[in-house]
Design a protein around this nucleic acid. Structure first.
Length: 644
RNA sequence: GCCAGUGUAGCUCAGCUGGCCAGAGCAGCUGAUUUGUAAUCAGCGGGUCGGGGGUUCGAGUCCCUCCACUGGCUCCA
């Protein structure tokens, strides 16, 4: 007999070789039906794998991520079986579960799998699922595994096996399909009740651009049809928040073929949002001791040689313009220009920290397939600043920048984000990274300390730093689940050296400053793209393109409406009149669709009392008030943001 | 850049296997209406069907090519 310890620390005796499924059965029949896999001593196992000795056991159902992973991993094998049926001789790469579903990378030779083919594959999968075929695990020697897949002609699997340790190789078989796999899997295919193949895509073998591109098929499966229906509905809902759709509907921005792809045109209503963001940044930065500078959009080749961006970064820059025997580049970043300003100012230690801020317009030649609405563009304006400080000032400056980020997040109500802290790896010193080991360690420790002390969730990734220092990127997600770096905060102790930046210290000696690159609001393009989705177009009044719209009940109230509108405009409130001869219901509907925060309705009653009937977007009528009271109300909403 | 898909009026979309197929709704304009919290009525004007080339008696419809967009891969704010 062996002892099985369950998560609640209760213990039960079972005969040696008992399976997790049998344990589940002994608890309840319903549990046995719902359980998908089991965690045995911190390792996820198949339900029907015999347990030989005393063990901790956790039964994994659909509500556990590890249960879902086993489910989707098994689904990938099911899809592979269907694919092999339709495309004999097909070769398989990898087929893992992912956050939402699974995929399999396959090589179909000359045959093309397109979206049209997904339906029949889906049907075949449903057939196979109904057969309740078991997923059977088998240990195999490396030699036998290689022999099997070589015979099958699958060079991808043989490549994978070649890297595995002999004695730890397992195959899984279900129905007519055998796959190299570590598992774990469902007991049988019958668990998979609802199947949807989502799309086909190209994917490079092992993520390497220089290797062959395989066909990747994405799918998702569920233990019940209703869960699939819910998931598809959720996807539809997410699409409604898509900034590209809302941007068109609310007339915020557009693209034009003649201008070029990735080059957004900001319409007046989008421009108004930018104005408010810049206002917020200006106020915030002025209070934090920043000074504003302005620099040209182009610079000569020599500067980018000095900075080190050429030739390494040249692929991401627009090709140079040649004139008067020299090459000029459109700037892809603002730092070199700012370093030149530093040189011109020739500061002493008394002038540091020097914080140079600019909403600098940059141009980056992104590959055509990488463009994505406002989130990934070729012309962008950064909420950029470079802080030059001494090593002693570094900690407090970095902390201040961090606080600035958090303050912004609070204003916008951004709570779903992850700070990605990228550090160097010592093995790449002098190669990928500047060879200043003690400075790397010192600044990384400092950055880590600030993050921990500020109680900020972050994940540390080794060997992902910039060549000039460690960095923090703020990762967020678009409505349709794409991950983006929204903002960035980088430490730089390399460029100051390259540019020969220095200051005279207290001991009358030249010293090199450290530079902090920071862009807490990222770029206008990406930040507003993100905000559109974050608010689903329902911008708070301080940020909305139009804060209020004046709606006269009938034509005879138009004059009164103009007076009120003019008064509000004079109080710096962004407003206009709906002067159409539509009925009030229609005017309200139009304003609601444009998501204008406040509607001010003017009829006989209001005209008589110098008041407006206020309707709030999405909330309805909030009562009659004087024009002054409404102005104060709006001003208060702005004050909370701008004066915090 | 690569793989797969899509491209019909400002927007959302119909147009089956090539032949009275260039349409609808919304938006726009004009007129009537003067309206009390999510669509008043009527009339009118919009498209060389993404660009170019080809097949055909005949092409939104089939083929080639370029461009753009969408979903991925790679790369990044």
């Amino acid at each position: 007999m062996i002892t099985i310890t369950l998560p609640d620390n209760s213990q039960k005796q079972f005969p040696e070789g008992v399976t997790s499924y049998q344990v589940a059965e002994s608890i309840s029949k319903r549990l046995a039906e719902a359980v998908l896999a089991a965690k045995v001593n911190d390792e996820v196992w198949d339900l029907n794998r015999p347990i030989a000795a005393d063990a901790k056991l956790k039964l994994l159902k659909w509500d556990e991520d590890e249960g879902k992973m086993a489910f989707w991993h098994s689904s990938a094998h099911l899809m592979a079986e269907a694919l092999e049926f339709f495309y004999p001789g097909i070769k398989f790469g990898i087929g893992p579960p992912v956050e939402n579903g699974f995929y399999y990378d396959v090589d179909t030779g000359d045959r093309v799998i397109s979206t049209e083919d997904l339906g029949k594959i889906e049907e075949k999968m449903k057939d196979l699922a109904r057969q309740n075929n078991g997923y059977v695990r088998k240990d195999i020697s490396k030699k036998d595994a290689l022999e099997y897949f070589q015979k099958k002609g699958d060079e991808y699997k043989t490549e994978l096996i070649g890297e595995l340790e002999d004695g730890k190789i397992t195959l899984y078989t279900q129905g007519n399909f055998i796959d190299l796999c570590r598992g774990p899997h469902l007991p049988n295919t019958g668990f998979i009740k609802a199947i949807k193949l989502l799309n086909v895509a190209g994917a490079y073998w092992r993520g390497d651009e220089s290797r062959k591109q395989l066909t990747r098929i994405y799918g998702i499966t569920f233990p019940q049809q209703k869960l699939l229906d819910d998931y598809l509905k959720m996807l539809e809902e997410a699409k409604k928040r898509d900034h590209r759709k809302i941007g068109r509907e609310l007339k915020l921005f557009t693209f034009d073929d003649d201008v070029g792809s990735g080059l957004p045109l900001w319409l007046p209503r989008g421009g108004a949002i930018i104005d408010q963001l810049e206002k917020l940044a200006r106020i915030t930065e002025t209070r934090a001791g920043y000074v504003r500078v302005r620099t040209p959009h182009i610079a000569k080749e020599s500067m980018y040689r000095t900075s080190g961006h050429l030739p390494y970064y040249a692929d991401s820059m627009f090709p140079p313009m040649e004139l008067e025997g020299g090459k000029y580049y459109l700037k892809a970043m603002n730092c070199p220009h700012h370093h030149k300003i530093y040189l011109s100012l020739n500061p002493s230690y008394r002038d540091l920290p020097l914080r140079l801020a600019e909403y600098g317009t940059c141009y980056r030649y992104e590959k055509s397939g990488e463009l994505f609405g406002l989130m990934r563009v070729r012309s962008l304006q950064m909420n950029d600043a470079h802080i030059y400080c001494t090593r002693q000032q570094f900690a407090s400056e970095f902390r201040a920048v961090n606080d600035l980020y958090l303050n912004y997040f609070k204003i916008f109500g951004i709570d779903k984000y992850v700070m990605r802290f990228s550090t160097h790896h010592p093995s790449n010193l002098g190669k990928k990274y500047v060879d200043m080991p003690e400075l790397w360690i010192e600044t990384e420790n400092m950055v880590r300390k600030v993050l921990v002390e500020s109680n900020i969730p972050f994940k540390e990734v080794s060997d992902e730093a910039a060549f000039y220092g460690p960095k923090i990127d703020v990762q967020v997600w678009s409505a349709i689940g794409k991950e983006f770096t929204l903002a960035t905060n980088q430490v730089d102790f390399a460029q100051p050296v390259r540019f020969g930046l220095s200051y005279i210290n207290k001991n009358n000696q030249a010293d090199t400053p450290i530079c902090i690159h920071r862009a807490p609001l990222g770029t206008h393009e990406r930040f507003i793209g993100f905000l559109i989705e974050h608010y689903a177009g329902n911008f708070p009044a301080w940020l909305a393109p139009d804060q209020a719209i004046v709606l006269p009940i009938s034509e005879k109230h138009n004059e009164r409406a103009s007076t009120i509108s003019a008064f509000l405009n004079n109080s710096d409130i962004r407003t206009f009149i709906d002067g159409s001869d539509n009925k009030i219901g229609k005017k309200i509907r139009d304003a609601e669709l444009m998501k204008i925060p406040y509607m001010l309705i003017i009829g006989d009653k209001e005209a008589a009392g110098n008041s407006v009937a206020v309707r709030k977007h999405g909330a309805g009528d909030i009562g009659i008030m004087s024009v002054e009271d409404f102005t104060d109300k709006l001003k208060e909403e702005e004050r909370i943001v701008f004066n915090r």
